[in-house]
Simulated assay, not measured.
Amino acid sequence: MPDSPDSISDEPPYEIAPSIWCGSYSSLSNHFLHTRNIKIIVNCSPTLEFLSELETSDVSLSSDIVLLSLDPSFSLENYDSNIQVQLSKQISKFNRTLQNYINHFYTLNPKSHSIIHHSFDNQPLQFESPILSGGCLQNSLFQINRLIKLLKNINTSVEVLIISKEGSGSLSTALCISYLMDSYNFNFAASLKHLQMRDPRIAPLNGNYYDDLIILESLKKFYNENIMIKESSQDLLTTNSKLKRRNDDEEMNNVVIEGKRKR
């Protein structure tokens, strides 16, 4: 279900898996960002609302942070000319950082198309914009998950922050679920159970609510397609990711145990 329109949770962000954090707008505090190695921030609330939050807060984002906005309904044409200009400048700014990382990765790994890709077409990962809107939601989920792998290949200490206004919105929940599906082969039920153990505020997606139904269908397609990709491509994960997998699994067990203690 959507976040409450009137309030922002002050709950600290929680770690859904090693180096992957989920929280509300309050997670954008300089204290949290400066004490963690956050290099990817994925906003899962309306883009303009999120950018306004950034502008009115005292948050300072370093120039090496990739900022994405998962906003299926976003369209630049919906805003007046002044806002379009402001948004275009912001999009251009964050897109440069995004493209720099991608270009750097493919310069170092010219034959990595079969290692980092977003779908069956096995093409290099690319973004037209840091705002992922329209199209198929499951494709956006693939793009974000592949980007996380790409940056972790460049720097294994990279951490990710997934945020929404309240920290428990449907889109942020969906992205967290997709990460668990992709990185740990969890199914939908196991992913949701794990998230609710980490943060009891997370509500099940409601198939009677149209937006949630779209998300549920997209996650189903994401899960099935991802399984087929992994079965057909033994080299999907990078060498560094494979070497780190055992340590990540051990850290995930610690995250699960810690979550149980907090309940």
Rank of each mutant, 00 (worst) to 15 (best):
Asp3Lys: 08
Ile8Gly: 04
Ile8Met: 06
Trp21Glu: 09
Cys22Ile: 13
Gly23Pro: 02
Ser24Leu: 14
Leu33Arg: 10
His34Asn: 11
Arg36Ala: 06
Asn37Val: 11
Ile38Ala: 06
Ile41Arg: 04
Thr47His: 10
Leu48Thr: 07
Leu54Met: 13
Ser57Thr: 08
Ser60Met: 15
Leu61Gln: 03
Ser62Gly: 14
Ile65Phe: 14
Ile65Leu: 15
Asp71Val: 02
Pro72Cys: 05
Pro72Thr: 01
Ser81His: 07
Ser88Phe: 04
Lys93Glu: 03
Arg96Ala: 00
Gln99His: 03
Ile102His: 06
Asn103Ser: 06
Phe105Cys: 01
Thr107Pro: 00
Thr107Asp: 06
Lys111Ser: 12
Ser114Asp: 05
Gln126His: 14
Glu128His: 09
Cys136Ala: 14
Gln138Met: 06
Ile144Pro: 04
Arg146Ala: 11
Leu147Phe: 06
Leu151Asn: 00
Thr156Phe: 13
Ser157Phe: 12
Glu159Ala: 09
Glu159Trp: 06
Leu161His: 02
Ser172Phe: 13
Cys176Gln: 15
Asp182Arg: 07
Tyr184Trp: 07
Asn187Arg: 10
Phe188Met: 13
His194Thr: 10
Met197Gln: 11
Pro204Asn: 08
Pro204Tyr: 07
Tyr209Trp: 08
Ile215Pro: 08
Glu217Tyr: 12
Lys221Arg: 14
Lys221Trp: 02
Ile229Gly: 00
Glu231Asp: 15
Glu231Met: 15
Ser233Trp: 02
Leu236Phe: 08
Leu237Val: 06
Thr238Gln: 01
Thr239Ile: 14
Thr239Gln: 12
Asn240Leu: 15
Asn240Pro: 12
Ser241Met: 02
Ser241Leu: 01
Asn247His: 10
Asn247Gln: 10
Asp249Lys: 10
Glu250Asn: 03
Met252Val: 01
Val256Tyr: 11
